[in-house]
Simulated scan of single mutants.
Amino acid sequence: MQAFLISTGVVALAEIGDKTQLLALVLASRFKKPVPIILGIFVATLVNHFAAAAVGQWIMAKVGPDIMRWGLGLSFIAMAAWMLIPDKLDDDDKLSERFGIFGTTVIAFFIAEMGDKTQIATVALSARFPEQLYMVVAGTTLGMMLANVPAVLLGDVAAKKLPQKLMHSIAAVLFIGLGIATLMTPLSL
């Protein structure tokens, strides 16, 4: 039970203000359908955190914190650029046409969670509680849901009040800030 409670608390706190929480807000404002987004976040997190618990330590040992830091920093800045793509592409939305809202959320969230601090926390927690893999994954998944479900519900309300272009601009500024902060701060495990 200790592994579950610690995992839940650590990830819920780490997720506050994180890029995946920001992604939850953007998806909610874009699609305005919270249920498939919440289910997509759950599935993506569960799969991602199982993968993190199983192979995350090996990947980090092979890549190293410096390369990981640069990859993460540059990916945040790339995400900022993607946020500024004109609304024409949002209306075109081939990804959501092909995979639906649920599938788009699973894919976007899974990719955004790669190398994220909550994924790295899952790796560390699985090393700390090696006999309790399922409790760690259940706890980290619950922590993600505790942080992101309110963001999705707020995003759905905010989408009715705020223009999508403004939301994308704010998201882009936050992603640039995350990118710069990541590039300037060494990762430590």
Rank of each mutant, 00 (worst) to 15 (best):
L25V: 05
L27V: 00
L5D: 06
E15S: 09
R30C: 01
S7K: 02
L22V: 05
L5E: 02
S7M: 04
A14C: 14
L5P: 02
Q21P: 02
E15P: 08
T20I: 05
Q21I: 03
A28V: 08
E15Y: 10
L27N: 07
K19F: 10
S29W: 15
R30Q: 11
T20M: 01
S29E: 15
A12R: 08
E15I: 07
A14N: 12
L25G: 04
I16G: 12
A14M: 09
F31A: 04
L23K: 00
I16K: 15
A14Y: 09
A28Q: 12
L25E: 06
G9W: 04
T8A: 05
A12G: 12
F31V: 00
V11I: 14
A14E: 09
G17L: 10
A28T: 06
L13G: 09
L27S: 03
L27D: 03
A14I: 13
V26C: 04
V10K: 03
A12H: 08
Q2S: 10
S7H: 01
F31G: 02
F31S: 02
I16E: 11
A28F: 10
L27K: 07
V11P: 09
K19D: 07
T8W: 00
Q2M: 14
E15R: 12
V10W: 06
K19C: 08
A24D: 05
G9K: 01
V10L: 14
